[in-house]
Computed example of a mutant assay.
Amino acid sequence: MVTSPDYGQPFALVVEDEPLILMEAVSILEDAGFQMLEAAHAVQALSVLEEHHHQIKLLFSDVDMPGDMDGFALAREVARRWPSIAIVIASGRSKPGPFDLPEGATFISKPFSATIVYHHVRKTMPEDAQPEPLRK
């Protein structure tokens, strides 16, 4: 679901099954200047990516979610299929092992703040791909 009408700004896909955390992550990334797409689990996220991968510049995903694919596996699949998409993974329960995250992806612990999210998104995305509010 697209939640912002400004098609000049890059898209971020947030994958989170907890509604309150989803709302918080969407709000933080909207404030950073992203247009938002949402998914509740990895299969839904892959479907959104199939349709919108050319617009999506950031994947922000939880690790633990319903279904057979967790956020680490989703991150590896996204990196393999769409290497230009920056990846930030978050969890309050899991920590990445040596081969869980693809190269260039970053991990943050929950609970997170806007400051922490912005820091990791800036670190993960090329500056020219970042929306203007994030660069300030």
Rank of each mutant, 00 (worst) to 15 (best):
L20N: 14
L20Q: 15
I21L: 13
I21R: 02
I21A: 07
I21E: 07
I21P: 01
L22A: 13
L22T: 03
L22S: 12
L22D: 10
M23K: 10
M23D: 13
M23C: 07
M23W: 07
M23V: 11
M23Y: 09
E24W: 07
E24D: 12
E24Q: 14
A25H: 07
A25E: 08
A25G: 06
V26G: 02
V26K: 06
V26F: 06
V26W: 04
V26R: 06
S27Y: 10
S27E: 13
S27N: 10
I28G: 00
I28N: 03
I28E: 04
I28T: 05
E30I: 04
E30P: 02
E30S: 11
E30K: 11
E30M: 07
E30L: 03
D31E: 15
D31R: 14
D31T: 11
D31L: 14
D31H: 13
A32V: 10
A32I: 12
A32W: 01
A32Q: 10
G33W: 00
G33F: 00
G33D: 01
G33T: 02
G33L: 04
G33A: 08
F34S: 01
F34K: 00
F34A: 01
Q35G: 15
Q35K: 15
Q35L: 15
Q35V: 14
Q35P: 08
M36D: 02
L37S: 04
L37G: 03
L37P: 00
L37T: 03
L37D: 05
E38W: 02
E38G: 06
E38F: 01
E38Q: 14
E38L: 04
E38P: 00
A39M: 04
A39I: 03
A40M: 11
A40Q: 14
A40V: 13
H41Q: 15
H41V: 06
H41L: 06
H41G: 09
A42E: 06
A42H: 02
A42C: 08
A42R: 00
A42V: 06
A42Q: 08
A42T: 09
A42F: 02
V43T: 14
V43R: 12
Q44A: 11
Q44D: 12
A45W: 02
A45V: 04
A45M: 04
A45F: 04
A45S: 08
L46N: 06
L46Y: 00
L46G: 02
L46Q: 10
S47T: 14
S47F: 08
V48S: 04
V48K: 06
V48T: 11
V48G: 03
L49I: 06
L49F: 08
L49W: 08
E50H: 12
E50T: 12
E50D: 14
E50Q: 13
E51H: 07
E51T: 09
E51G: 04
E51R: 09
E51P: 00
H52D: 11
H52A: 13
H52V: 08
H52C: 12
H52I: 05
H52R: 15
